[in-house]
Amino acid sequence: MASDNIITVKFFARLREELETASLDVEAQPGLTAGGLLRTLAGKGGQWAQLDSAQPVMIAVNQVMTKPEKELQPGDEVAFFPPVTGG
């Protein structure tokens, strides 16, 4: 598979533990947004459904915090993680 049309998705904190994966590769598609990717992954069901639940998921693209409307490009790295709470 050619890697020039791939988006790398990384999961952190409890998401990584609950989904039992640290990262995966998805094929880039025209018009795909970070929020759209999140909904697509949530559509896999099971533990993945939590990605589109009432619990917020924070999104970073290429290590910069972003909004769900951010359009993704081939080669991007998308990170999903739960909000960080302070103590």
Rank of each mutant, 00 (worst) to 15 (best):
G31W: 11
Q73I: 07
Q55M: 02
L41A: 07
A2P: 15
F81N: 00
L51N: 09
G75E: 13
I59K: 03
N5T: 15
E20F: 06
T33C: 05
G35N: 10
P83Q: 06
G43E: 11
P83Y: 06
L41Q: 14
N62I: 09
Q47G: 04
Q63K: 12
V64M: 14
V64Y: 06
E20Y: 00
K70Y: 13
E17R: 11
T85I: 04
Q29V: 01
D25N: 14
F80P: 07
N5I: 04
G75T: 13
P82R: 06
G75L: 11
V64R: 14
R39P: 00
V26R: 07
A49W: 08
P56H: 07
G75P: 12
F12T: 00
P30V: 01
R39M: 06
E27M: 07
N5V: 09
E71L: 08
L32V: 02
V26I: 11
A34G: 02
A79T: 08
G75A: 12
G31T: 11
S3H: 14
P68G: 10
L38Q: 14
D76K: 09
E77V: 07
V64F: 07
Q55L: 01
T33G: 12
S23N: 10
Q50I: 12
G46S: 10
M1L: 15
A34P: 01
F81C: 01
G43K: 08
E69I: 02
P82A: 05
A42Y: 05
L24E: 15
A42Q: 06
E69T: 13
G45S: 11
L15Q: 01
A2G: 08
W48L: 04
L41M: 15
G75H: 14
T66Q: 13
V78T: 03
I6A: 08
G45R: 12
T33P: 06
S23L: 02
S53W: 13
K67G: 02
L37P: 05
T8E: 14
W48S: 03
V26E: 09
K44Q: 15
T33V: 12
D4C: 05
A13V: 00
G36F: 10
G46R: 13
I7T: 06
K67C: 01
V9G: 04
S3C: 06
Q29I: 03
V26T: 05
R14Q: 13
W48T: 05
T40I: 02
L32G: 02
L41G: 10
E77P: 00
V61K: 13
L41N: 12
L41F: 05
K10Q: 09
P74D: 05
N5M: 10
G45K: 12
R39G: 00
T40C: 11
F11R: 05
M1N: 14
A22L: 02
A54W: 01
E71A: 10
E71D: 04
L38H: 02
I6C: 00
P82F: 10
R14G: 04
T66M: 02
T21H: 10
E77Y: 00
P56Y: 10
